[in-house]
Design a protein around this nucleic acid. Structure first.
Lengths: 367, 367
DNA sequence: CTGAAAGCGCTTACAG
DNA sequence: CTGAAAGCGCTTACAG
């Protein structure tokens, strides 16, 4: 119903993807360009052995026919599927969300697609995901293991199918594989050193799942540092909980119910710390002035909190990026020894640990 | 080096996946079970036309040979790849993280794998992701469109390849496709009704990206409701910002700098609301008592805030679940008219809007 | 209920 | 530098 004399702006027509009923294949492109299918295949992957002139001709044919590369067929024939798998636990955890983004970005740059699945820390789900990955012949898989995963569980699918994999964030006992994580022991040391320097004398460690290696490492580093500063650590002041805000609240309540009154609290992570501060306030204690509060991960919210939260950054995006790098490199060198990358954490000092109101200032604080 | 007389607990040996150098295929299973490859293929998919006895025999053969189904080959031959694509913007947004989890869980139950990619609201990235999905012949794709995506952009890859898709969270002008989102207009109405009932007279709407349809819808609902309650809405009190905590801080500062002093603030979402409350406090105003603060999404943190935040829940996990359901159904009925699902929000009333200190109580509040 | 055969659309030596 | 041919491991009519 356009009047004839109106100029309609010319949108390029959507190219056809089918010849009659058939899909456009390399064969059609080859015929149209006057070359063989093999040549087309090489042009697709931009092989240096095809002269530029031929490439141009083939690419033109592709364009004209509206050819779309069929990755499915390539995958069956080629050695690689250019697909990786990510078996994560839960992406609602901001740390893992950040990590996932970096991982995916790096993979995409390298031409890999990513199949993602979440185990929710359930081992049956994790196993089903591994099965899917192996059946689909992913070139490699990233695993954030569930709490109960053992080396045997992983081997059942990955070793027998010869699928390279890298463990992220959590170690697995006696499992020979690439591994990337934040250096949580070091992170604990950093926080411990800082609290000691600020003059704290009694430090509690609150929150986080009891058996998690992340928790264990952070606590170990913390205790080690305190010991070096001649500060005793009372194991009764280490209280595990869920790794969320509610966990922080609980842990504080339990701590105070026990009659403990530390002058500093190291929290399992920032989210726990928010709960800890909340619970302190509910109990009439001002976080930062009555009790120093420090934490791990340094998510964005840490800086925005009141008072701003001292936290040891653990750089999830670096962990994700490194994991991708390692697995990509692993493909070319399956027999190289396993890499173990521990990324250095960094302490961000903020008011939650530096505005303590004290009767006596300790020696360390003065020096 | 085990002494002979020690009983070694018998771990089932890892089954071989290869015969000599070759992978174990259906052909091997068929030979071992004394049936044809076609029969094996049907057993894998548990076809009712194969008698139980034969199935057992075939499955036993699989077990004995350590057969692993090769999904790659199936994909090339079968009509479906049993793979879906998710083109999201950013999973660090808690709303989308929640949505993604639900989506993935539902798909996994239905036997689909999920290829995930993030556009970061960048259209070039989005387009590359769509290309990957189409080349891999995913059975369908979920798209959370970038801010600038048009119908043409989507059609370029999805329409020409006949790939079913459902839009999530954001609409696209003149685009005929399944669509799932929270009913944001309704959400705005719910919050507006509540604030009016609480006796608020001057309401600001703060935060969120200016052009986003989510923001527009929420504001439209809010204004509509206020109008119904004979409360005028001053467009100068609608201030856009980034959709994070910092955005909330900014918006409040701008509002107060303009000399405005509303008795209620509706925030774009909960995270913005946290920033808003923080900024109010910095300006000597107590959120909840001096200014009512309400919001949208009702993330977990809303309830844990001080004061607990009134928020309209928009159920991301339901949106994800519905999107999965719709796309799965769509595969069986490609020509049915597009579905548009708007999920009903629900208001959670908390202290941030119910503890106002007022000189005069309005009529509505009394009734 | 089961088998023989064709074929999905690529890639990969290999030959020229 | 290019082509002819084999083959990846399944599924799918079709025939019996």
């Amino acid at each position: 119903m356009q009047p004839d004399d109106v100029t309609v702006s010319e949108v390029p027509p959507v190219p056809p993807r089918r010849l009659g009923k058939r899909r456009v294949t390399m064969k059609d492109v080859a015929a149209h360009a006057g070359v063989s299918r093999a040549t087309v295949s090489l042009v697709v992957r931009d092989s240096p052995q095809i002269p530029a002139e031929t490439k141009d001709r083939v690419r033109q044919a592709m364009e004209q026919l509206g050819y779309v590369y069929d990755h499915r067929a390539a995958v069956m024939r080629a050695e690689r599927t250019m697909t990786m798998g990510l078996v994560a636990t839960d992406v609602r955890n901001p740390y893992f969300a950040e990590l996932t983004m970096a991982l995916q970005t790096r993979l995409q740059e390298a031409g890999f697609a990513l199949i993602t699945g979440y185990s929710l820390d359930d081992q049956a789900r994790e196993e089903r995901l591994l099965e899917v990955m192996v059946q689909r012949h992913v070139d490699g898989v990233f695993v954030i293991p569930s709490k109960t995963t053992t080396s045997d569980d992983l081997n059942r699918w990955l070793l027998t199918s010869d699928t390279p994999h890298v463990l992220i964030a959590r170690r697995i006992k006696d499992h020979e594989a690439d591994y990337v994580a934040a250096d949580n022991v070091r992170a604990g040391v950093l926080l411990g050193d800082h609290l000691a320097t600020e003059g704290c004398q009694t430090v509690a460690f609150l929150g986080g799942p009891a058996q998690s290696p992340v928790r264990t490492d952070r606590e170990r580093g913390l205790v080690k540092s305190l010991k070096a500063h001649r500060i005793a650590f009372d194991q009764a002041l280490s209280i595990a909980s869920s790794a969320d805000r509610a966990g922080g609240v609980e842990a504080v309540n339990q701590l105070l119910a026990n009659g403990a009154r530390p002058d500093a609290i190291a929290c399992y992570n920032d989210v726990v710390a928010f709960g800890v501060m909340e619970a302190l306030r509910s109990n009439g204690l001002a976080p930062g002035t009555d009790v120093a509060v420090g934490s791990f991960d340094d998510i964005q919210e840490a800086e925005l909190n009141h008072p701003p939260l001292t936290s040891v950054a653990t750089f999830p995006e670096q962990v994700g990026y490194e994991a991708a790098r390692i697995l990509i490199e692993r493909l070319d060198d399956p027999d190289a020894p396993a890499e173990r990358v521990l990324l250095s954490p960094r302490l961000s000092v903020r008011e939650s640990t530096t505005t303590m109101r004290r009767a006596t200032i300790s020696q360390e604080a003065i020096s």
